[in-house]
């Protein structure tokens, strides 16, 4: 064993070498290295407590995905803006993408629709489209990146979500804003509060300077250029400010919940 140790790092002070090695790791790895070890340890303990609960690859992967949520939350810089592009860079035609065909996309009557606001907010009054259109709007030309790998550049115009959260008196210390949508089978998705408060996170009412068409989520989508596409819900019916993790359509099936870009 002593020989083996000598072979491991011949003629080099092991503790110093380890220090150097750790220094060469990026901050991210260095800070989360220990946390990762801890969560693996915790997992072993948990499975050790319950003899019927066998260690499986699936559980391990879920655990690592949770760890990756934490890493991404730590990496997320609220001041880092998603790159913006000139209008000439917009992808035409911008792809329609969903887990159903365009013919099955929700058909919402604008004048009957109201945005429900629930949870930890002072004012739970529902909002008509007319009322929402009166709020100040900004335009962004950003890259939409799909979890599948493809990307497309689009132009979205609407009200920054953080402005709206302020207007309704949301408790921005809460952990999530949870969206429910009109898609068939009920689409929903949680958005972490720090991302919800990002300057580019938007309640979108227009695509390419025109009222959001049915294909892209009429009457309202949430545009989040710091997240993958599936974290940008369309056909939004309600938003809930909450401390509970309520899961999401894709998140529950295994897509990483933070999915930041």
């Amino acid at each position: 064993m002593r020989r083996l140790r000598n072979l491991l790092i011949p003629g080099v002070d092991k503790s110093l070498l380890l220090k150097d090695a750790v220094k060469t790791m990026p901050d991210l790895t260095r800070r989360r290295f220990v946390a990762g070890g801890a969560s693996f340890g915790a997992l072993t303990l948990l499975t050790g407590c319950d003899v019927t609960d066998q260690f499986s690859a699936e559980q391990m992967l879920k655990q690592v995905s949770k760890f990756n949520d934490a890493v991404q939350a730590w990496m997320f810089n609220p001041d880092a803006m998603a790159p913006t592009f000139p209008e000439s860079a917009i992808t035409k035609p911008f792809p329609f993408n969903a887990y159903y065909g365009l013919e099955d996309a929700p058909e919402i009557e604008g004048k009957d629709w109201k945005l429900e606001v629930r949870g930890l907010v002072e004012n739970k009054k529902p909002w008509t489209l007319e009322e929402l259109y009166k709020l100040p709007q900004v335009k962004q030309v950003t890259r939409h990146i799909c979890v599948e790998g493809w990307s497309a550049i689009g132009s979205w115009t609407g009200t920054p979500l953080r402005d709206f959260l302020k207007i309704v008196g949301a408790d921005t210390r809460a952990k999530y804003v949870w969206f429910q949508c009109a898609d068939k089978d009920g689409y929903n998705s949680p958005l972490d509060m720090r991302t919800a408060l990002h300057a580019q996170t938007q309640m979108t009412f227009k695509f390419g300077d025109e009222i959001l068409p049915r294909a892209y989520g009429f009457p309202m989508k949430i545009r989040v250029p710091t997240k993958l596409g599936f974290k940008n819900p369309k056909y939004v019916l309600s938003m809930e400010v909450t401390n509970d993790y309520k899961g999401g359509f894709w998140e529950d099936q295994g897509y990483n919940s933070f999915s930041g870009s």
Partner: peptide
């Protein structure tokens, strides 16, 4: 979804192992 879980789990093993390799490759 399953492939992404594997990819983003194995990346830690690959990256940490690779960094140790680079560090020791230079240090020794």
């Amino acid at each position: 979804g399953g492939a992404l879980l594997w990819h983003f789990a194995a990346m830690w093993l690959l990256m940490v192992n690779g960094l140790i390799y680079l560090a020791l490759g230079f240090a020794t």
